[in-house]
Design a protein around this nucleic acid. Structure first.
Lengths: 219, 219
DNA sequence: CCAAAGTGCCCAGTCACACCGAGGAAAATT
DNA sequence: AATTTTCCTCGGTGTGACTGGGCACTTTGG
């Protein structure tokens, strides 16, 4: 049974390795996202390596084993299912759930998760549009593009967010850019890469590059 | 923020002090129910005393402070609300929930508990008939009697169980003695204190003293 | 191809938390 | 008052997680 901290490390490593597939994950990067020191990371990597959860060869970066990947995906599954529960059943807003789910994802009863999944009618996506891994770790890679990659004239529907920070989500709510909103790119300002967009065939707004590269759309 | 272990100690001390009101709780007794050694208990008592959660005077037994009582009651509140959730929403049987709730009771978000309480329509009792403390720690002492105290001729409705072990609850299910069942005491066997009872104006059964002193009824 | 820069490892240690055996002190029992 | 029971204190264990500093390895850019 993995400890809370171990689950957090594995989750972080999984996410980092998804960010740049093929590239091994670096110690410094892990330390950065987990807000800790590289020395602590090395320590944990050695332990996780000994437990067979990742391939750890000094100076070589790190990659998850089959088991490690499974633990990471199950943790993500728990996190996202609880997020769905919080939003759909308890009436939380999508900007309030991350911290709470961060705590709930460490609950260790598989039966609980199976029953919860059923209670939620087997959701495929969490409130931020991210796919929920199956019990066996299977996960569907969503087919969507960053808004920042759209060219003027292109359009799409908001499907997911890359960032789940409170200020970002609050901004989206305010701007009318929640999941499901239709976006049409009118113009791209070369100077700062900000975009002029039309939302739901209605309002025209300017969004910064910082925003557009944290928003996903699909056709 | 109390640790898991601290919450468990406080909960155990609260329950022991309820068992025999007025009597201070003894070190050995705590060690017994928490499955640990007296030396470990002394150690934890000192720490909890320093944190102002209980009155700890050596050799004098122990009693909770206002704060300690509050933490204990909040922990019990969380435990029981989650039990209601597991049974009413996720379809768990009342004999399956204890362990899972034991883990969930340590979640630390007050907002979560408030929303859960609302989602469950502010239940007053958990699936075993125990009262759920309010957010401020208020708890209503249920008015019920042990079946073992009933005399032949008396009757009542099953309101709660004292023991929540799987075998006991399974037995009750099988015997038709779930919450709400009507009981009528026909005879008391002086030899072993077992009782002959009629259930729901129907079947007549014999129940042992072991059973009857773990079952509560009210009129 | 080499040296500087950058990255990561290892050591030795810290800190917090929880636990425990042994021995003797205090309290309860008789 | 003597004996039994309770339980406190002391010193110590183990684990999990973190960390600074020094050095080893790798990468990079000339």
């Amino acid at each position: 049974m993995p400890s809370h901290t171990e689950e957090n490390y594995l989750k972080a490593i999984y996410k980092l390795s998804e960010e740049q597939p093929g590239v091994e994950v670096s110690t410094n990067r892990i330390a950065e996202v987990l807000q800790t020191r590289p020395a602590s990371v090395t320590d944990m990597l050695r332990r996780l390596g000994e437990k067979g959860l990742l391939h750890y060869e000094r100076y070589r970066g790190v990659s998850l084993t089959h088991d490690g990947r499974r633990v990471a995906l199950l943790t993500i599954r728990k996190h996202r299912l609880w997020e769905v529960f919080l939003v759909n059943k308890l009436g939380f807003n999508w900007d309030e759930v991350h911290e709470v789910a961060e705590e709930m994802e460490h609950l260790q009863s598989p039966l609980l998760m199976r029953r919860l999944d059923e209670f939620l009618s087997f959701p495929q996506l969490d409130p931020h549009g991210d796919p929920i891994p199956a019990e066996d770790g299977a996960i569907v890679r969503p087919q969507h593009r960053l808004v920042s990659d759209l060219q003027p004239g292109e359009e799409g529907t908001v499907m997911a967010v890359k960032n789940t920070s409170v200020p970002f989500l609050r901004y989206l709510d305010k701007a009318g850019l929640s999941l499901g909103a239709k976006i049409e790119v009118l113009d791209k300002i070369a100077f700062d890469n900000s975009l002029e967009i039309r939302i739901n065939d209605n309002k025209v707004t300017l969004i910064s590059h910082e925003i557009s590269c944290n928003l996903f759309v699909a056709d």
